[in-house]
Design a protein around this nucleic acid. Structure first.
Length: 446
DNA sequence: GTGGGGGAG
DNA sequence: CGTTCTCCCCCAC
């Protein structure tokens, strides 16, 4: 436990357990959590043991020199189907399969989606002769493929992922409404559907981009003087996309095609009017923008047959916002957690012994070195607690807890999420309290 | 800026 | 599990 990696994982595991407990008691939600050192690994490990558990990918994270697969990261990843790795979608997976199989990977023609399952694993790709970032770059390159994709995929195959945890935006970059159709081949029907989509788009824009701004007097903040609406963001572009029905193959079966075509135009300013009647805004948008866009997209009088129509508001220009969307902004929570957790930073040599009481709530990895057994626990060297009793006490102060901070708007409370043991006086994060008491009991039983 | 590709959930 | 709907980022032009 002097190993910083062990300590970090253990701390994260207990934070996860605490958050899941609070989620269950406060909201009645179950949740599944994965704990590891980056987004890729924690996401994948978090998908095991659904729907109500947590899993930590335990060390060793790196292999011995003489045994390439003696680490748990490699053993965990290697049996995954290549297309199951986040960041490797259908197209990329097909290219990788084709390279490993030395022929085009079979695709399930009976299905519109998914297909294949020739089962090419991460290991199959990673161990293929001459496999390297450069090889992958060559295999994968093509129109529209970003540079550096080879290095990116190689990293993923080896469990490496530098992707940062991002911050949720207060407004989306795009709002789109779409519907799919069995058959849509007359202008009449198209206009009818465009009217429906336009209505839903304008409604969504009001719902997501319009803020109910209540002007209040300082002395009586509970009484709004007047409620003014204002746009949080203006989409500058409107785009119409369709998906034409893919042409029938000579052999009779359907072609898998998601190909879309689109045309876009400036978003007319009248859609932002707050005085005009919404129904008339929708009708103007339909006649003055969407129908002309459709004629540009499909100039032929007939002959087209659409399976999908999409209307999108894009190119979002954020309105300067003084008050950030509270509740969606989790960066504040992390900033406060930094404050709270600074005193327990694992790099620091703390005199306090209770750190030793923190072990992962549950430590399990899937996969093993022989490849014969799909599920093995590598937990002999570290305590395993499944369904831990590590639960916060009812007397816990909600306002000062880690989760309480989520909703809290008060930065000054940051360092109050500490618990002081009444037996030994040690201070620690609230979520470590259960483990600490367990540690006390363990000492007495010795 | 426009239109398309690939991908996530 | 597969499909649908929505959203994101990247790229060439």
């Amino acid at each position: 436990l002097s190993d910083p990696l062990h300590l970090r994982l253990a701390l994260a595991s207990h934070l996860a357990h605490y958050l899941r407990t609070r989620l269950a008691s406060d909201m009645g939600y179950t949740a599944t959590v994965g704990v590891s050192t980056n987004k890729l690994l924690s996401k994948l490990v978090g998908n095991t043991h659904k729907p109500n558990a947590q899993t930590t990918l335990v060390p060793p994270y790196v292999s011995d020199k003489d045994n390439e697969t003696s680490d748990n990261v490699t053993r965990f990843l290697d049996t995954y189907e290549i297309g199951k790795i986040p960041g490797i979608g259908f197209k990329t997976a097909q290219k990788l399969r084709a390279h490993v199989l030395q022929r085009p990977a079979n695709i399930d023609t009976g299905l519109v989606y998914g297909a294949t399952k020739e089962h090419v694993s991460v290991r199959d790709v990673r161990m293929y002769p001459a496999m390297s970032p450069d090889t992958l770059e060559r295999i994968l390159r093509g129109p529209g493929v970003p540079q550096g994709i080879g290095a990116r995929i190689w990293s993923l195959l080896n469990g490496c992922d530098e992707t940062e945890v991002g911050q949720a935006r207060e407004t989306p970059r795009q709002i789109s409404i779409e519907d799919s159709y069995m058959r849509l081949d007359t202008l009449d029907a198209v206009v009818k559907e465009l009217r429906v989509l336009a209505k839903r788009l304008v409604e969504r824009m009001h719902m997501d981009l319009l803020e109910e701004d209540e002007d209040r007097v300082q002395d009586a903040p509970s009484v709004p003087l007047m409620t003014a609406k204002r746009w949080l963001a203006h989409p500058r572009t409107i785009r119409l996309s369709t998906r034409p029905r893919p042409p029938q193959n000579p052999n009779g079966n359907r072609n898998r095609s998601f190909a879309r075509v689109s045309r876009s135009a400036p978003m007319p300013s009248f859609v932002f009017s707050l005085k005009d009647d919404i129904a008339s805004v929708i009708e103007r948008l339909l006649c003055e923008t969407l129908v002309p866009l459709f004629r540009r997209l499909h100039p032929e009088k007939s002959g087209w047959n659409l399976t999908l129509v999409n209307v999108a508001a894009t190119n979002m220009m954020d309105t300067a916002s003084e008050k950030g969307g509270i509740g969606r902004d989790i960066s504040k929570m992390f900033k406060q957690q930094d404050e709270v957790l600074r005193q327990w930073k694992v790099e620091e040599e703390e005199e306090e012994e209770p750190a030793a009481a923190i072990v992962p709530v549950q430590t399990t990895i899937t996969g093993d070195s022989s490849g014969l057994s799909p599920k093995v626990d590598y937990s002999s060297d570290i305590a395993v607690m499944v369904g831990s009793e590590d639960v916060p006490t009812p007397s816990q102060e909600v306002e000062n807890s880690a989760v309480g901070m989520w909703a809290s708007d008060d930065e000054s409370k940051a360092d109050q999420d500490s618990f002081c043991c009444d037996e030994c006086g040690a201070s620690m994060p609230t979520f470590a309290m259960g483990a600490h008491y367990r540690w006390h009991r363990h000492r007495y039983s010795e």
